[in-house]
């Protein structure tokens, strides 16, 4: 169909200009975004090293389930705090790269962006922990809840400590203090037995209570971090 004819057809289909268009579109609110879509969108912005750190923690679990000699749970406990530490660093990324002002100008609040990122990382980390616990329990014969508590406690401790440090003035100035806390917790998880801290001898109930308490503390820190995200940006 040639251009002239198209123009004729367009002219033939001409209608009166809409009179209420501008006023209507000005008042129109943009379409909302669902939680899952928001999390998936933000997950794409999370740096690769976060996913690598989360995935790396799976390796000793899988090796431990099949052939790694010694206590694979201890090795897991030593690796997961770094995964938590790197995840905590994601909460300050907007500040570190001076993106906060830009992100605050978008139709999503900075708080919801940070929350979506934390949810994405948290979901993957939770998956890694549960998968690891299942693999390690199959090998060691210990109950899954006990193993889950044993490997999640260092992760939760590092997440809680990292988030706590991040909200102190010193922590906000020095981004890698939370990683130092992760390293300390990792060292304790790995070498605690050697310095007389016999954590593996603790009963299952103690592990689960400790994990539960740390989960509550971490959740509280997440809430505080989210509520003050805009203020710190």
């Amino acid at each position: 169909m040639n251009r002239a004819l198209r123009a004729q057809i367009r002219a033939a289909f001409s209608y009166p200009e809409p009179t209420r268009k501008r006023a209507f579109l000005r008042k129109l609110r943009p379409p909302g975004v669902g939680m899952i879509e928001m999390v998936l969108t933000q997950a794409a912005y999370i740096r690769g090293r976060v996913w690598v750190a989360a995935g790396a923690a799976l390796i000793p679990a899988l090796l431990g389930a099949f052939r790694l000699p010694g206590n694979a749970a201890r090795l897991m406990g030593a690796l997961l705090p770094f995964s938590a530490g790197i995840a905590v660093l994601e909460t300050r990324r907007s500040r570190d790269y001076s993106m906060a002002e830009l992100e605050r100008a978008t139709r999503f609040s900075l708080r919801s962006v940070v929350f979506a990122r934390m949810l994405a990382i948290g979901a993957v980390d939770l998956g890694v922990i549960l998968l690891s616990a299942a693999a390690l329990s199959a090998r060691s014969g210990l109950p899954v809840p006990r193993t889950t508590a044993e490997i999640s406690a260092p992760f939760l401790a590092a997440a809680w400590a990292g988030l706590y440090i991040e909200r102190t003035p010193l922590g906000r100035r020095h981004g890698h203090l939370s990683m130092a806390a992760s390293a300390l917790i990792s060292a304790l998880a790995l070498g605690g037995e050697d310095v007389g801290l016999s954590l593996s001898a603790l009963p299952s109930g103690a592990w689960m209570a400790a994990s539960g308490a740390l989960a509550v503390l971490t959740a509280r820190e997440v809430c505080i971090t989210l509520s003050r995200t805009e203020e710190w940006a």
Binding site: R20, F24, L28
Partner: peptide, 19 residues
């Protein structure tokens, strides 16, 4: 024009307007 505006409103309330 009424139908056009109603179309926008219904679309936004339909849950299909995610992206």
């Amino acid at each position: 024009e009424d139908v056009t505006q109603e179309t926008f409103l219904r679309y936004l309330n339909s849950g299909k307007a995610g992206g």
